[in-house]
Computed example of a mutant assay.
Amino acid sequence: MTSPDQALLLPYRAEHTPATAAQPGAPALHHMRLTIGDTEDGLIGPPVHCERITFSLPCAPDARVPASEPVILRTRLDLPRGPGRGRQWLVEAATGDPAVTLLNLLPAAPARFDGTWALTLTLDISTPLGDTIRVFEETALDYSPQHHTRSATLAATPRTS
């Protein structure tokens, strides 16, 4: 769910599942799913052109993560094929700061979100994540040729399945 001071053009949904006990010798990984462009009624309004989305995922406030410990991160991007969907998306991750993980989603060509499709980023990470996520998007409405960077805060909801 997006914060009330919403400045974003795209709809977002963030769901997380805290790590459970890992098998011996395996790290415990936290699971998060970020869905972009999905609405309950399938409508976005005017189509939105997108050139970049950045997620800032802060570590949980009470978590202790040693600076010398590397972050384990696995990502998977689910994207239905079709025209206007950015062709291929690149996920760039920055995990150098244990307090925050940055993820940049970059389409090979500008994507056109029109409510008929959604992009889903699934990640497993060793860092315990907080419940708030900062989102920055470089977007423009269909009728506006200028792209602007907009940002807002999302609240991640616990995943039930």
Results as ranks from 00 to 15, higher is better:
residue 30 H to K: 02
residue 122 T to P: 00
residue 62 D to K: 11
residue 50 C to Q: 08
residue 68 S to Q: 15
residue 131 D to T: 09
residue 160 T to G: 00
residue 32 M to A: 09
residue 39 T to H: 01
residue 122 T to V: 01
residue 112 R to V: 12
residue 85 R to D: 06
residue 66 P to M: 09
residue 16 H to C: 01
residue 47 P to S: 09
residue 106 L to P: 00
residue 53 I to Q: 04
residue 16 H to G: 05
residue 37 G to A: 05
residue 70 P to I: 05
residue 5 D to M: 00
residue 100 V to N: 13
residue 56 S to K: 07
residue 89 W to H: 12
residue 149 T to K: 09
residue 106 L to W: 10
residue 83 P to E: 15
residue 67 A to L: 06
residue 121 L to I: 04
residue 104 N to P: 01
residue 55 F to A: 00
residue 136 F to V: 07
residue 94 A to S: 14
residue 49 H to T: 08
residue 153 T to S: 11
residue 50 C to F: 10
residue 105 L to Q: 12
residue 87 R to L: 13
residue 157 T to L: 14
residue 73 L to R: 03
residue 31 H to Y: 12
residue 22 A to S: 11
residue 109 A to K: 14
residue 126 S to E: 01
residue 159 R to H: 02
residue 24 P to C: 11
residue 62 D to E: 12
residue 31 H to D: 08
residue 2 T to P: 02
residue 149 T to W: 12
residue 63 A to I: 03
residue 45 G to F: 11
residue 59 C to Y: 01
residue 141 L to W: 04
residue 131 D to M: 09
residue 12 Y to P: 03
residue 64 R to Q: 14
residue 101 T to F: 05
residue 103 L to W: 02
residue 104 N to R: 15
residue 95 T to G: 01
residue 91 V to H: 02
residue 81 R to H: 12
residue 3 S to F: 02
residue 133 I to Y: 02
residue 159 R to K: 04
residue 90 L to Q: 13
residue 28 A to S: 13
residue 76 R to S: 11
residue 51 E to F: 03
residue 73 L to V: 12
residue 100 V to G: 05
residue 142 D to T: 10
residue 128 P to Y: 06
residue 124 D to T: 08
residue 141 L to S: 15
residue 107 P to I: 07
residue 157 T to N: 04
residue 98 P to V: 05
residue 161 S to L: 13
residue 128 P to T: 10
residue 114 D to E: 04
residue 145 P to G: 06
residue 91 V to M: 02
residue 2 T to D: 05
residue 139 T to C: 02
residue 86 G to W: 05
residue 3 S to R: 05
residue 40 E to Y: 09
residue 63 A to P: 01
residue 1 M to C: 07
residue 87 R to E: 10
residue 31 H to E: 07
residue 47 P to M: 10
residue 106 L to I: 11
residue 23 Q to F: 15
residue 48 V to N: 06
residue 6 Q to E: 08
residue 82 G to L: 11
residue 15 E to D: 03
residue 116 T to S: 15
residue 31 H to V: 01
residue 65 V to W: 14
residue 132 T to R: 14
residue 146 Q to K: 07
residue 121 L to C: 03
residue 83 P to K: 15
residue 95 T to N: 06
residue 60 A to D: 10
residue 29 L to I: 01
residue 73 L to P: 11
residue 128 P to N: 09
residue 127 T to D: 07
residue 19 A to S: 07
residue 21 A to L: 15
residue 29 L to Y: 01
residue 91 V to I: 09
residue 54 T to V: 13
residue 84 G to E: 12
residue 146 Q to C: 04
residue 7 A to I: 03
residue 41 D to K: 02
residue 148 H to S: 10
residue 148 H to V: 11
residue 117 W to R: 00
residue 122 T to D: 06
residue 133 I to R: 00
residue 1 M to W: 10
residue 144 S to H: 13
residue 149 T to G: 07
residue 23 Q to H: 15
residue 141 L to G: 15
residue 65 V to L: 13
residue 31 H to N: 08
residue 127 T to P: 03
residue 73 L to A: 08
residue 97 D to N: 14
residue 32 M to Q: 07
residue 5 D to V: 00
residue 98 P to Q: 07
residue 34 L to V: 09
residue 116 T to D: 14
residue 82 G to C: 12
residue 17 T to I: 01
residue 41 D to F: 00
residue 102 L to T: 14
residue 64 R to W: 15
residue 81 R to D: 15
residue 138 E to A: 13
residue 111 A to D: 02
residue 28 A to Y: 08
residue 98 P to I: 06
residue 61 P to R: 13
